[in-house]
Design a protein around this nucleic acid. Structure first.
Lengths: 339, 339
DNA sequence: AAAGGGGGTGGGAGCGCTCCCATTGGAAGC
DNA sequence: GCTTCCAATGGGAGCGCTCCCACCCCCTTT
């Protein structure tokens, strides 16, 4: 009596499909990749065998042979692991996910927050663990920038890193948006327009301050010095309080993001200033929270999902051997009650 | 004159490392996986060669040989691609990402919204494109459930699917939370406690209604029938309006999530009912928005990041060949002004 | 002194796929 | 009728790694 071996129950291989269809592995492979040079008869035989065996190609083996993993990584630098919970990144992920799906690439999410995370990203970059990488939220002198530079792999930056412009990036027109916001305040007759900056070790923070400053100078006004917050609500409240002390007569404030604008609103409310009657406030980002603020926040809208989508598309283009050009997405002012 | 060939500039292989170190591939491999049976001398020689060549193992080749991809997938079912922007999922991702990093697994994000997405997930599941899969937000009769069942791959459900309990899952105590919320309303002397249900084709929606109903019955009160919303703010407003028409005398309402509770608050405000004086409101989720609501929302807190983290940990355990047990995470009521 | 362990080592066979290339045979061209 | 050409085909060599296994050598046991 023959005992059945403990059956390893392995997935059928291409070899098995070929055998069942009575053809060679080569032919079966061609059918699967629908390459030419296969007769109608054999093609159908292979298709039948695939169905019968429930065959699904092994992506790992394919990856090894083609030297393509079929995946792209979204790498987020920064120290806070909960950055993925940030509504901004969540939107980026939505856009990137959609664009990668179109190109049949998988999305890997990597956080370079811990040492371990950074090591893993480095291995990914240097060991060809993905077909390409999107890099976001790099900080000043981020070591990731160099690793990425040395990696022989397509890399697209979402948002420019501080200082240098990489070869390929997608960014939002931060300077233009900040300028528009400031110009709007000026056009409403405000003349003492203060600013609450974001972190100046980020390009976003710098670019938005530049936009503010440009608009002020163009109007012949003295820009406020860069009062730095860190993009959080409390920091906005703090900077606002300091501003009120130093410049009790200010009649408007441009905050470099909505969180800080919300903090500013809180401080103004507590100080008994009416918004917008006494002080007009404009933010940046146009997150959902801006609409809910009291009063609803006038803010610069930026296309966040589009940022993710276009970053991914640029990466796909690179993976396909094309040569895209850097992209800067437009922003626009959304007028609500706060200004 | 010898022309240099166009140099393919390929990554050094283990073979190259071995050659440079003057050992065999086997020994080099052992060093890399720090396996025993390697003399000190050769170990150091290999390490030196690795450094000199800047060698990084090719994860794809390793994956093929070991039959392990080193990645886990978080699959989200549902029709709306922007689900990743949902603050709930964003938190889940944070937790899952952290837990997978501990186990040195990469996180792949898959959305089974479109046909293409579903096909890709199916290939992932059946073609062993990952070492394991976390499945979330399955809907009633979701075909993914069967595919997952047939896949010979560890699968952990985040939140139970409708009806059946899978072999491995991590869930939140929805019923207990809803019961506690309702009991709290009753303990404050409310007796006409209405309910705004979530979608009843989801287990979350059903479980939370069960909790409400149980508490009402236990108090000897007649539970309201399941008035179904779809977890969105507008639906909460609509259901609330209908409830006010049918039961003008209600003095409390339990909404199955914060979004719908916010809608209810809006309707109540427009109807001139004071909260909580006339009508007390309790929500579920404890998202950031609950704190910002007017009045701040009393709600059932659920540990969302922990849900993601524990789901991932359970998956890791399965991948390592262990046999974990399903897990239900506790919820607790957060008392604010609305009730 | 012969037999019996192991540690250390390298050869080689996969893992499951792609793709180059040699081979075949029939249609088209002279 | 005989080259010429090309679609169709299958064999085989990788892709870069892991891991089984046979082998050697030296140090203990009986």
């Amino acid at each position: 009596m023959v005992m059945a071996d403990d059956p390893p129950r392995r997935q059928p291989t291409l070899e098995a499909v070929a055998e069942l269809a009575g053809v060679s592995r080569s032919v079966a492979s061609r059918v699967l990749n629908n390459a030419p040079h296969v007769s109608r008869v054999k093609r159908e035989a292979v298709e039948r065998a695939v169905r019968e065996l429930g065959y699904v190609p092994n992506p790992t083996a394919r990856a090894l042979a083609t030297r393509q993993t079929g995946a792209a990584a979204l790498v987020v630098s920064g120290e806070d692991p909960s950055i993925f919970a940030d509504p901004f990144f969540a939107q980026v992920i939505v856009g990137a996910s959609a664009a990668l799906e179109e190109a049949d690439l998988h999305l890997m999410l990597c956080l370079a927050a811990t040492d371990r995370g950074r090591r893993r990203v480095e291995e990914l970059l240097r060991g060809k663990g993905a077909d390409g990488v999107m890099l976001m939220a790099l900080r000043e002198n981020d070591p990731l920038a160099r690793t990425a530079d040395e990696a022989e792999m397509p890399v697209v930056f979402g948002g420019r890193p501080v200082g240098t412009a990489p070869r390929w990036y997608v960014d939002v027109d931060n300077t233009g948006g900040a300028r528009e916001a400031t110009e709007y305040l000026l056009s409403r007759g405000r003349t003492r327009v203060a600013v609450i900056c974001g972190r100046l070790d980020t390009e976003v923070g710098r670019a938005r301050y530049r936009g503010y400053r440009d608009a002020m100078l163009a109007a012949g006004l003295e820009p406020f010095p860069p009062n730095e917050g860190d993009f959080t609500e409390p920091s906005g409240a703090d900077v606002m309080a300091a501003l009120l002390l130093q410049h009790p007569d200010l009649d408007a404030v441009f905050a470099a993001n909505d969180n800080m604008a919300a903090g500013a609103l809180r401080t103004l409310r507590e100080a008994g200033r009416r918004v917008p009657a006494d002080v007009a406030v404009v933010g940046f980002d146009d997150l959902a929270a801006a609409r809910m603020a009291d009063p609803p926040l006038t803010t610069v809208h930026q296309p966040i999902a589009a940022l993710g989508r276009e970053t991914a598309r640029m990466l796909v283009a690179l993976v396909h051997g094309e040569t895209p050009t850097p992209l800067i997405l437009p922003t626009h002012l959304v007028r609500r009650a706060s200004a």
